[in-house]
Simulated assay, not measured.
Amino acid sequence: MTEPIVDAAPALDFDLKSLPKVSLHDHLDGGLRPATIIELAEAVGHTLPSTDPTALGEWFRESADSGSLVRYLETFDHTVAVMQTKEGLFRVAKEFVEDLADDGVVYGEVRWAPEQHLQKGLTLDEVVEAVQEGLEAGVEAVAETGREIQVGQLITAMRHADRGQEIAELAVRHRDKGAVGFDIAGAEDGFLPSRFRDAFTYLAENNFPATVHAGEAAGLDSIQSALVDGRALRLGHGVRIAEDIMVEFDEDDADDEDSDNIGLVTLGNLSSWIRDRGIALEICPSSNLQTGAIAAFGEGIGSHPLDMLYQLGFNVTINTDNRLMSGVTLTDEFELLVETFDYDLDDLLELTLNAAEASFLPLEEKEALVEYINDAYGDLG
């Protein structure tokens, strides 16, 4: 096991947890509470590595912290197994919303793959409806505490399966009943978005937005396919777009770890296209380190290219990916940026506004969200 990902943040004069946050890349089956997994597993007869909540949580983090996306994805066998009934889906979705709100999230897009939750006989529409009922119950529970949160579903198709068209139609069918966008997820390497070209065309014909996992386990070809075949408005992770950027350091700064100089930068055609058009990158710092997505750039979180991308003007957003597996919250990821890259309140505000503006909300709701975030940050000043 590698050393802990998140170091203690320096002393701050503001409470990171209380800051309003926007979460765009957070998997439903990667955000369960360990205690909930244990209770649901007992009810359905599923065997777990441990029945102690603390030990089980540690097992998930250690198993995910392997440097391999394939090994990382294996941990989902246990969470998906307990999300096969209406009751299980409802509870997981409700608690998911409550946990987001406890972390200061005011708008969240929850992605998950309905096709993975049919083992007990539920239909695709039934599982989507069960999750939506849970999300709405979570919103109501948060409202009862005097807080507000808004959430939407990102209906996801699995890359290795052949149900893209069916899942795309499912997403469009639920567009006015909680679904706000479409995604493809799972093993990226070897499964380009081009496999789902017809499904993405169907979504475009129905004016339904898509974000596509690309640039995590695979490189520039995957990103290119996400844009061309997937018509992606956002890139899930997208971190390996940095492979299309050439940086030449000045000799005096090349070995200076404290230097802020990122050298002479040349963007390739693909990276220029993404930056110049403001295509959002849904970057998940801790997860990217765990899965090896940033291995080509260095060993530690300080080598993550997100800071370079941010400085160069890319539309960077910060996300958790899977809170259970990475053992993080969005607050933790913000603390990580403060600790690693010396980000301040202005940086966190810009990253949060990036996410708000990249959300799949209608324009009027998006503008209201941006205003709310600006007002909340303004009160700190």
Rank of each mutant, 00 (worst) to 15 (best):
V172C: 05
D52S: 03
I5T: 10
H25V: 07
I279S: 09
L203V: 11
L267T: 07
E129P: 00
E350S: 14
D346F: 03
D103A: 00
N288I: 13
E367D: 14
D26H: 14
G381N: 12
E115Y: 09
E339V: 03
L306R: 09
H213Q: 08
G327E: 02
G181A: 15
E350M: 09
A376R: 15
N315K: 15
G104P: 01
D65H: 14
L309T: 14
M1G: 12
F191Q: 11
A130S: 12
A130V: 01
G134S: 08
A204Y: 11
S222C: 10
A9H: 02
A101R: 11
T266I: 11
S18N: 12
F76M: 04
G327T: 06
G121Q: 09
H25N: 01
E350V: 14
L312K: 08
S259D: 01
A204C: 05
R111S: 03
Y310A: 03
F341G: 00
N269D: 15
D7E: 14
L281E: 06
V239H: 01
L336G: 00
L19K: 01
R275V: 06
D52I: 02
K17E: 15
A161P: 01
T331D: 03
N322C: 10
M1H: 12
P53L: 13
L122K: 05
D26S: 14
G263Q: 03
F360C: 03
L73W: 08
V80Y: 01
M308Y: 10
A143P: 08
L264M: 07
G186S: 06
E299V: 08
F341R: 04
